[in-house]
Write a protein that binds this DNA or RNA. Structure first.
Lengths: 343, 343
DNA sequence: TGGTCAGCCGGAACCGGTTCCAGACTCCAC
DNA sequence: GTGGAGTCTGGAACCGGTTCCGGCTGACCA
């Protein structure tokens, strides 16, 4: 493997000049630069990022911690992040993190504590103070996308508002018996995505004078944030023909798909007897006619990278942190899965 | 950030001894090792992998190139790979690669040509000779999972046999008018996954004396390997009530789901008038009652990592390359989407 | 008693870049 | 002519580890 010393020798200059010529930092005569570049190309020299990062402290590599790659939302985010990082010449090191477990500690205490990444993007995880501290001690910026990281910049949609919007859509259609398929843990973790969506739903219902009789349990069922999760939760919820809701607000489109499947199996005609709305704007939503609150995870990933690069001092220092503070975009898209309440 | 020199000073030994004590290579007295480890723990020393890899040439990092992360198969593979690498103390650098495009050259010529990864796992891509050469020149092993890489070890199911198995299942049920929803490009790239499945289907049909009248086009329709892809391909295929097939072999479960959706929309009763079989063993297959040829992508990812680690000389050198040569496991799982042909 | 050798440790070189610093040279202003 | 700023270059230090090599010790054996 050719090293920079070989390039320097071939071009008849010192290592220092060769380095300057190739990196573009410092004074180098145009003609010298040309000669060095030609020499590098001739022997196929490619700089070792390890050697460079050893002295500069920059690795040109960002870590992404993400709980799933196979849920639609997370997959899209990951693709968006990857595309943006690649374009900026950065590598992406993936840490696929089960929400809780021994591996999680290992990732933070071993993998992320080393100096292998310049920054961390945490997608859909709620980081503990300790975890944030591990990374902050290394003076590496963190960006939270979706989840939360105490003290770190956060990019997210307004989940509370999105849930309110979905609920209002059903209310406007005349529904009064509306149930919510909440993400698992929504009741426990108030600040989580699931918790916010649940809270947005409950508040909107109660503002409409539709506070649940018989407790919250009667209209909120928790489900895994997946299609099978939605399926079994919906089966449970719709199993009793007597007091069946006329509309369902699912915490994600995948949950909504599961609910649609369950309703189908139970022989409940849709949307005449049951309206369903989700959140996400899933790739399949159009095909299944699902009304949903769209969000744009690929774009969100891109924005997260933009923010990270900004914190790393790439690009124009003067620019403000992009999209800081303001919640990310959402949009209500009405399709055939929701209709006026039956009389 | 504490360096190893700080640890050495605190423990009252030389850098060399500190390094030996912490890495476990070479002679170090038990008592000395204990002292060094205590010193390291006390000041929170964590070795910089960059510095180590600079001299050892090993990065403890493997690159994964993968065309999608958001198709079920690929997501599962990625999770399997990540889990296994993490357990072995390796990092995973992700290169999400559009099947073709300028980014692809950039990944190979810039990112992978550097010395940042010890090995490459190529999932579901067909690498060109040139691309393999770029990596081989750096003496880094490549493992192909699913796709192909000329000259590199390959892990894959026998796609031809899997397709034959699926087709035979339909034949045994008495179907004679069977169509195949092939993956895009199946006709062009014979060695690709889609091509092999298509070939397995055609050969089995022809061996059963069911060579297509009116050309292959009459019974093979190409579709994107996704749910919407299967949907539109199936709409096209099932649109003419006259000569409609009684059974469909879809190149993947996601395609099959799309076809099921299309049949539903067209009002074709399933499975009485239309049997559908897929390939994959998708997470949702059970819920939708889809008969399929299961494969185990998570496990496949694990096996790929095992092979990579073997090539890198980790673990027992003596062991043979795991699962080399033999095709990976598949299994026919019969559910409600396939039934006897209507008379 | 002397020699061999395993165990243990430290000095120094080294990996492959980047950057500091000093020196040389040019150009221009005073 | 002198001074200074600006441009260009090379030597050497440096980043943070690993490893080679040689020296020292003590046990064991002839």
């Amino acid at each position: 493997m050719p090293a920079i010393a070989d390039v320097a020798r071939l071009a008849g200059v010192s290592k220092a000049t060769a380095s300057r010529a190739l990196s573009g930092r410092g004074y180098v005569a145009a003609e010298t630069r040309r000669r060095v570049q030609a020499a590098a190309a001739q022997i196929g020299f490619i700089a070792s990022p390890d050697a460079a990062s050893l002295v500069t402290g920059r690795t040109k590599n960002v870590g992404v911690v993400i709980p799933f790659v196979n849920r639609w939302f997370f997959g899209e985010v990951l693709e968006g992040i990857e595309r943006a990082l690649l374009a900026a010449g950065y590598d992406l090191t993936l840490y696929n993190l089960a929400p809780v477990g021994p591996e999680r500690d290992r990732v933070f205490d071993f993998f992320l504590a080393r100096k292998r990444v310049d920054a961390v993007v945490a997608v859909g995880v709620d980081l503990t103070d300790r975890e944030v501290a591990v990374i902050a001690r290394r003076e590496k910026p963190i960006i939270a996308l979706g989840g939360t990281a105490p003290g770190a910049p956060r990019l997210a949609i307004d989940d509370h508002a999105a849930a309110a919007l979905a609920t209002e859509h059903l209310l406007r259609l005349g529904h009064t018996r509306i149930a919510h398929l909440a993400g698992a843990g929504a009741g426990a973790a108030a600040r989580s995505v699931q918790g916010q969506r649940r809270a947005g739903f409950l508040q909107t219902m109660s503002e409409a004078g539709l506070a649940p009789r018989g407790g919250v349990e009667s209209v909120v069922v928790e489900s895994e944030m997946s299609l099978p999760g939605g399926y079994s939760a919906a089966l449970q919820l719709l199993g009793h023909p007597g007091d069946r809701p006329t509309a369902l607000f699912a915490a994600s489109d995948e949950v909504a798909f599961g609910a649609m499947r369950a309703a189908e199996r139970l022989g409940i005609p849709m949307p005449s007897d049951l309206s369903i709305i989700g959140i996400d704007g899933h790739e399949y939503a159009e095909l299944f006619g699902l009304t949903t609150i769209e969000q744009y995870p690929g774009e969100q990933g891109r924005l997260a990278v933009e923010a990270v690069l900004h914190l790393l001092g790439e690009g124009d220092e003067a620019d403000p942190l992009p999209a800081s503070g303001a919640p990310l975009a959402t949009r209500l898209v009405v399709r055939s899965s929701t209709t006026a309440a039956p009389r």
